[in-house]
Amino acid sequence: MAVNDATLAIDVHGLTKRFGDKTVVKGIDLQVPKGIIFGFLGPNGSGKTTSIRMMCGLLTPDAGEGMVLGLNVLTQAPEIKRRIGYMTQRFSLYEDLSVAENLSFVARTYCMSDVGDRVARALAELGLAHRSTQLAGTLSGGWKQRLALAACMIHEPDLLMLDEPTAGVDPEARRAFWNEIHELAARGVTVLVTTHYMDEVERCHEIAYLSEGRIVARGTPKTVARTSGLKAVSIHGPDLMALAPRLRMLPGITSVAALGAELVVSSADADALTAAVASLEDGRYRMTEVDPTFEDVFVELTRRVGTGDKNHGEAAA
Protein backbone atom coordinates (compact mmCIF):
# COMPACT_ATOMS: atom_id res chain seq x y z
CA MET A 1 0.00 0.00 0.00
CA ALA A 2 1.14 3.51 -0.72
CA VAL A 3 1.92 4.73 2.76
CA ASN A 4 3.34 8.21 2.76
CA ASP A 5 6.78 7.80 4.24
CA ALA A 6 8.24 11.29 4.43
CA THR A 7 11.81 10.03 4.35
CA LEU A 8 11.40 8.48 0.93
CA ALA A 9 11.66 10.45 -2.30
CA ILE A 10 10.46 7.47 -4.30
CA ASP A 11 8.25 4.75 -2.92
CA VAL A 12 6.62 2.64 -5.61
CA HIS A 13 5.20 -0.85 -5.55
CA GLY A 14 4.52 -3.39 -8.23
CA LEU A 15 5.03 -1.04 -11.18
CA THR A 16 4.28 -2.98 -14.34
CA LYS A 17 4.33 -1.98 -17.99
CA ARG A 18 3.27 -3.95 -21.02
CA PHE A 19 3.84 -3.04 -24.65
CA GLY A 20 1.52 -5.21 -26.69
CA ASP A 21 1.88 -8.72 -25.31
CA LYS A 22 5.39 -8.09 -24.00
CA THR A 23 5.73 -7.26 -20.32
CA VAL A 24 8.72 -4.98 -20.10
CA VAL A 25 8.63 -4.00 -16.44
CA LYS A 26 7.41 -6.77 -14.16
CA GLY A 27 6.22 -5.38 -10.88
CA ILE A 28 9.16 -3.47 -9.52
CA ASP A 29 9.28 -2.10 -5.98
CA LEU A 30 11.58 0.83 -5.42
CA GLN A 31 12.28 2.79 -2.27
CA VAL A 32 14.71 5.67 -2.57
CA PRO A 33 15.47 7.69 0.58
CA LYS A 34 15.66 11.44 0.23
CA GLY A 35 19.01 13.04 -0.39
CA ILE A 36 20.88 10.03 -1.76
CA ILE A 37 22.31 9.14 -5.13
CA PHE A 38 20.59 6.05 -6.34
CA GLY A 39 22.06 4.06 -9.18
CA PHE A 40 19.51 2.36 -11.41
CA LEU A 41 21.41 -0.29 -13.31
CA GLY A 42 20.76 -3.06 -15.75
CA PRO A 43 21.59 -4.29 -19.22
CA ASN A 44 20.14 -2.79 -22.39
CA GLY A 45 16.41 -3.32 -22.63
CA SER A 46 16.01 -4.30 -19.00
CA GLY A 47 13.37 -1.62 -18.47
CA LYS A 48 15.22 1.26 -16.79
CA THR A 49 13.95 4.01 -19.06
CA THR A 50 10.43 2.59 -19.00
CA SER A 51 10.43 2.50 -15.19
CA ILE A 52 11.66 6.08 -14.96
CA ARG A 53 9.01 7.24 -17.40
CA MET A 54 6.33 5.65 -15.26
CA MET A 55 7.64 7.41 -12.17
CA CYS A 56 7.66 10.76 -14.03
CA GLY A 57 4.08 10.32 -15.17
CA LEU A 58 5.13 9.94 -18.82
CA LEU A 59 3.82 6.40 -19.09
CA THR A 60 0.76 4.98 -17.38
CA PRO A 61 1.60 1.83 -15.43
CA ASP A 62 -0.51 -1.22 -16.22
CA ALA A 63 -0.32 -2.18 -12.58
CA GLY A 64 1.23 -0.88 -9.42
CA GLU A 65 1.10 2.36 -7.50
CA GLY A 66 3.23 4.58 -5.40
CA MET A 67 4.42 7.98 -4.37
CA VAL A 68 7.07 10.26 -5.76
CA LEU A 69 7.95 13.15 -3.43
CA GLY A 70 4.86 12.27 -1.45
CA LEU A 71 2.62 12.65 -4.51
CA ASN A 72 0.59 9.86 -6.05
CA VAL A 73 2.12 8.64 -9.30
CA LEU A 74 -1.26 7.72 -10.77
CA THR A 75 -3.26 10.81 -9.90
CA GLN A 76 -0.86 13.67 -9.26
CA ALA A 77 1.40 13.57 -12.28
CA PRO A 78 1.13 17.34 -12.97
CA GLU A 79 2.32 18.18 -9.45
CA ILE A 80 5.13 15.64 -9.70
CA LYS A 81 6.31 17.11 -12.98
CA ARG A 82 6.65 20.52 -11.38
CA ARG A 83 9.05 19.21 -8.76
CA ILE A 84 11.23 16.77 -10.62
CA GLY A 85 13.90 17.20 -13.25
CA TYR A 86 14.13 14.48 -15.87
CA MET A 87 17.01 14.18 -18.24
CA THR A 88 15.95 11.96 -21.11
CA GLN A 89 18.24 9.31 -22.51
CA ARG A 90 17.80 10.69 -26.00
CA PHE A 91 18.60 14.39 -26.45
CA SER A 92 15.22 16.07 -26.29
CA LEU A 93 15.93 19.78 -26.39
CA TYR A 94 15.32 21.83 -29.52
CA GLU A 95 18.18 21.48 -31.95
CA ASP A 96 17.08 24.57 -33.85
CA LEU A 97 17.17 26.73 -30.74
CA SER A 98 20.39 28.12 -29.36
CA VAL A 99 21.83 27.01 -26.03
CA ALA A 100 20.53 30.11 -24.27
CA GLU A 101 17.14 29.97 -25.98
CA ASN A 102 16.66 26.38 -24.88
CA LEU A 103 17.47 27.23 -21.29
CA SER A 104 15.19 30.29 -21.30
CA PHE A 105 12.40 28.20 -22.76
CA VAL A 106 12.68 25.64 -19.98
CA ALA A 107 12.97 28.27 -17.27
CA ARG A 108 9.85 30.05 -18.51
CA THR A 109 7.77 26.88 -18.69
CA TYR A 110 8.54 26.31 -15.01
CA CYS A 111 7.41 29.87 -14.24
CA MET A 112 10.78 31.03 -13.05
CA SER A 113 10.70 34.74 -12.32
CA ASP A 114 14.40 35.43 -12.84
CA VAL A 115 14.83 33.72 -16.19
CA GLY A 116 17.78 35.83 -17.33
CA ASP A 117 19.77 35.30 -14.13
CA ARG A 118 19.14 31.60 -14.04
CA VAL A 119 20.15 31.11 -17.64
CA ALA A 120 23.31 33.16 -17.11
CA ARG A 121 24.18 31.15 -14.02
CA ALA A 122 23.52 27.83 -15.73
CA LEU A 123 25.65 28.86 -18.68
CA ALA A 124 28.50 29.88 -16.41
CA GLU A 125 28.39 26.66 -14.38
CA LEU A 126 28.27 24.69 -17.57
CA GLY A 127 31.21 26.51 -19.07
CA LEU A 128 28.95 27.21 -22.02
CA ALA A 129 28.80 30.99 -21.74
CA HIS A 130 30.90 31.50 -24.86
CA ARG A 131 28.59 29.18 -26.81
CA SER A 132 25.31 30.57 -25.63
CA THR A 133 24.27 31.57 -29.14
CA GLN A 134 25.30 28.30 -30.77
CA LEU A 135 22.42 26.14 -31.99
CA ALA A 136 21.96 23.13 -29.72
CA GLY A 137 21.93 20.82 -32.72
CA THR A 138 25.49 21.80 -33.61
CA LEU A 139 26.95 20.99 -30.18
CA SER A 140 29.13 17.91 -29.82
CA GLY A 141 27.59 14.89 -28.12
CA GLY A 142 29.16 15.53 -24.76
CA TRP A 143 28.19 19.19 -24.75
CA LYS A 144 24.63 18.25 -25.61
CA GLN A 145 24.57 16.05 -22.52
CA ARG A 146 25.80 18.92 -20.38
CA LEU A 147 23.21 21.27 -21.81
CA ALA A 148 20.46 18.72 -21.18
CA LEU A 149 21.65 18.34 -17.60
CA ALA A 150 21.65 22.09 -17.04
CA ALA A 151 18.16 22.32 -18.55
CA CYS A 152 16.67 19.70 -16.25
CA MET A 153 18.13 21.38 -13.18
CA ILE A 154 17.28 24.97 -13.99
CA HIS A 155 14.13 24.95 -11.87
CA GLU A 156 15.93 23.47 -8.85
CA PRO A 157 13.92 20.26 -8.55
CA ASP A 158 13.86 18.13 -5.40
CA LEU A 159 14.33 14.94 -7.35
CA LEU A 160 16.47 14.40 -10.43
CA MET A 161 15.95 11.45 -12.73
CA LEU A 162 18.96 11.20 -15.00
CA ASP A 163 18.83 8.61 -17.75
CA GLU A 164 22.41 7.91 -18.79
CA PRO A 165 23.58 11.47 -18.21
CA THR A 166 27.25 10.66 -18.80
CA ALA A 167 26.91 8.58 -21.97
CA GLY A 168 29.48 9.90 -24.40
CA VAL A 169 30.96 12.38 -21.94
CA ASP A 170 34.76 12.59 -21.52
CA PRO A 171 36.39 11.50 -18.23
CA GLU A 172 37.12 14.98 -16.99
CA ALA A 173 33.59 16.14 -17.56
CA ARG A 174 32.27 12.95 -15.99
CA ARG A 175 34.26 13.66 -12.88
CA ALA A 176 32.94 17.21 -12.77
CA PHE A 177 29.45 15.86 -13.27
CA TRP A 178 29.72 13.41 -10.37
CA ASN A 179 31.17 16.07 -8.11
CA GLU A 180 28.22 18.27 -8.85
CA ILE A 181 25.77 15.42 -8.26
CA HIS A 182 27.33 14.85 -4.84
CA GLU A 183 27.06 18.53 -4.03
CA LEU A 184 23.38 18.46 -4.97
CA ALA A 185 22.81 15.38 -2.81
CA ALA A 186 24.52 17.12 0.09
CA ARG A 187 22.00 19.94 -0.30
CA GLY A 188 19.17 17.40 0.00
CA VAL A 189 18.37 16.74 -3.65
CA THR A 190 17.62 13.12 -4.45
CA VAL A 191 19.21 11.78 -7.61
CA LEU A 192 18.23 8.65 -9.48
CA VAL A 193 20.73 7.93 -12.19
CA THR A 194 21.24 5.20 -14.75
CA THR A 195 24.59 4.35 -16.20
CA HIS A 196 26.51 1.64 -17.96
CA TYR A 197 29.86 2.87 -16.62
CA MET A 198 31.03 0.51 -13.90
CA ASP A 199 33.30 3.07 -12.24
CA GLU A 200 30.23 5.22 -11.61
CA VAL A 201 28.49 2.45 -9.70
CA GLU A 202 30.74 3.01 -6.71
CA ARG A 203 29.84 6.67 -6.61
CA CYS A 204 26.22 5.85 -5.82
CA HIS A 205 24.96 5.51 -2.26
CA GLU A 206 22.61 2.74 -3.24
CA ILE A 207 21.93 0.77 -6.37
CA ALA A 208 19.25 -1.46 -7.79
CA TYR A 209 20.05 -3.89 -10.54
CA LEU A 210 17.35 -4.57 -13.08
CA SER A 211 17.23 -7.56 -15.35
CA GLU A 212 14.43 -8.34 -17.77
CA GLY A 213 12.07 -6.03 -15.98
CA ARG A 214 12.76 -7.28 -12.46
CA ILE A 215 14.97 -5.90 -9.73
CA VAL A 216 17.37 -8.75 -9.03
CA ALA A 217 19.68 -7.05 -6.56
CA ARG A 218 19.72 -3.93 -4.46
CA GLY A 219 21.55 -2.26 -1.63
CA THR A 220 24.82 -0.40 -1.33
CA PRO A 221 27.29 -1.23 -4.08
CA LYS A 222 29.37 -3.24 -1.60
CA THR A 223 26.44 -5.31 -0.36
CA VAL A 224 25.40 -6.11 -3.88
CA ALA A 225 28.91 -7.20 -4.76
CA ARG A 226 29.20 -9.27 -1.60
CA THR A 227 25.81 -10.93 -1.74
CA SER A 228 26.32 -11.91 -5.32
CA GLY A 229 28.67 -14.46 -3.77
CA LEU A 230 31.06 -13.94 -6.59
CA LYS A 231 34.72 -14.85 -6.13
CA ALA A 232 37.48 -13.84 -8.47
CA VAL A 233 41.02 -14.95 -9.05
CA SER A 234 43.58 -13.08 -11.07
CA ILE A 235 46.04 -15.21 -13.02
CA HIS A 236 49.47 -14.13 -14.25
CA GLY A 237 51.54 -16.30 -16.47
CA PRO A 238 52.51 -17.26 -20.03
CA ASP A 239 50.17 -17.72 -22.96
CA LEU A 240 47.02 -16.52 -21.24
CA MET A 241 45.12 -16.21 -24.49
CA ALA A 242 45.27 -19.95 -24.98
CA LEU A 243 44.24 -20.52 -21.40
CA ALA A 244 41.11 -18.37 -21.54
CA PRO A 245 38.94 -20.61 -23.75
CA ARG A 246 39.91 -23.64 -21.70
CA LEU A 247 38.77 -21.96 -18.49
CA ARG A 248 35.52 -20.83 -20.06
CA MET A 249 34.67 -24.44 -20.82
CA LEU A 250 34.83 -25.41 -17.15
CA PRO A 251 31.52 -25.74 -15.26
CA GLY A 252 30.36 -22.93 -12.96
CA ILE A 253 32.64 -20.23 -14.30
CA THR A 254 30.87 -16.85 -14.75
CA SER A 255 33.44 -15.02 -16.73
CA VAL A 256 36.99 -15.05 -17.91
CA ALA A 257 38.20 -11.60 -18.78
CA ALA A 258 41.56 -10.45 -20.03
CA LEU A 259 42.71 -7.32 -18.20
CA GLY A 260 46.10 -6.19 -19.46
CA ALA A 261 48.64 -8.85 -18.53
CA GLU A 262 46.28 -10.78 -16.31
CA LEU A 263 43.28 -13.01 -16.66
CA VAL A 264 40.47 -12.58 -14.16
CA VAL A 265 38.37 -15.66 -13.60
CA SER A 266 35.21 -15.30 -11.57
CA SER A 267 32.54 -17.64 -10.34
CA ALA A 268 29.72 -17.66 -7.83
CA ASP A 269 30.58 -21.24 -7.08
CA ALA A 270 33.64 -21.23 -4.80
CA ASP A 271 34.20 -24.95 -5.37
CA ALA A 272 34.13 -24.58 -9.13
CA LEU A 273 36.66 -21.80 -8.92
CA THR A 274 38.92 -23.84 -6.64
CA ALA A 275 38.67 -26.72 -9.04
CA ALA A 276 39.50 -24.50 -11.96
CA VAL A 277 42.48 -23.05 -10.20
CA ALA A 278 43.61 -26.50 -9.09
CA SER A 279 43.67 -27.66 -12.69
CA LEU A 280 46.31 -25.04 -13.34
CA GLU A 281 48.63 -25.92 -10.45
CA ASP A 282 51.65 -26.61 -12.61
CA GLY A 283 53.80 -23.80 -11.27
CA ARG A 284 53.81 -21.70 -14.38
CA TYR A 285 50.93 -19.50 -13.15
CA ARG A 286 50.77 -17.05 -10.29
CA MET A 287 47.34 -16.66 -8.74
CA THR A 288 45.91 -14.08 -6.36
CA GLU A 289 42.43 -13.71 -5.01
CA VAL A 290 40.90 -10.36 -5.99
CA ASP A 291 37.63 -8.48 -5.44
CA PRO A 292 35.28 -9.19 -8.28
CA THR A 293 34.55 -6.15 -10.44
CA PHE A 294 31.06 -4.78 -10.76
CA GLU A 295 31.17 -5.85 -14.34
CA ASP A 296 31.61 -9.46 -13.21
CA VAL A 297 28.93 -9.07 -10.59
CA PHE A 298 26.41 -7.75 -13.09
CA VAL A 299 27.25 -10.35 -15.68
CA GLU A 300 26.65 -12.96 -13.00
CA LEU A 301 23.35 -11.37 -11.93
CA THR A 302 22.15 -11.22 -15.51
CA ARG A 303 23.22 -14.82 -16.12
CA ARG A 304 21.21 -16.04 -13.15
CA VAL A 305 18.00 -14.51 -14.48
CA GLY A 306 18.69 -16.23 -17.77
CA THR A 307 19.05 -19.61 -16.04
CA GLY A 308 16.08 -19.04 -13.74
CA ASP A 309 18.24 -19.01 -10.59
CA LYS A 310 16.76 -16.16 -8.60
CA ASN A 311 17.52 -17.10 -5.03
CA HIS A 312 20.60 -14.97 -4.62
CA GLY A 313 20.31 -11.25 -5.35
CA GLU A 314 16.76 -10.57 -4.24
CA ALA A 315 17.65 -11.57 -0.67
CA ALA A 316 20.25 -8.86 -0.58
CA ALA A 317 17.77 -6.03 0.04
Binding site: L58, P78, K81, S92, T109, A151
Partner: peptide, 14 residues
Amino acid sequence: ERGTLEALLVMPLR
Protein backbone atom coordinates in the same frame (compact mmCIF):
# COMPACT_ATOMS: atom_id res chain seq x y z
CA GLU B 1 9.51 12.53 -34.28
CA ARG B 2 12.46 14.57 -33.05
CA GLY B 3 12.10 13.29 -29.50
CA THR B 4 11.42 16.73 -28.02
CA LEU B 5 7.91 15.65 -27.02
CA GLU B 6 9.30 13.67 -24.09
CA ALA B 7 10.86 16.79 -22.62
CA LEU B 8 7.77 18.83 -23.42
CA LEU B 9 5.48 16.32 -21.70
CA VAL B 10 7.56 16.20 -18.55
CA MET B 11 7.23 19.97 -18.18
CA PRO B 12 4.28 21.23 -16.18
CA LEU B 13 2.30 22.39 -19.23
CA ARG B 14 -1.46 22.16 -19.52
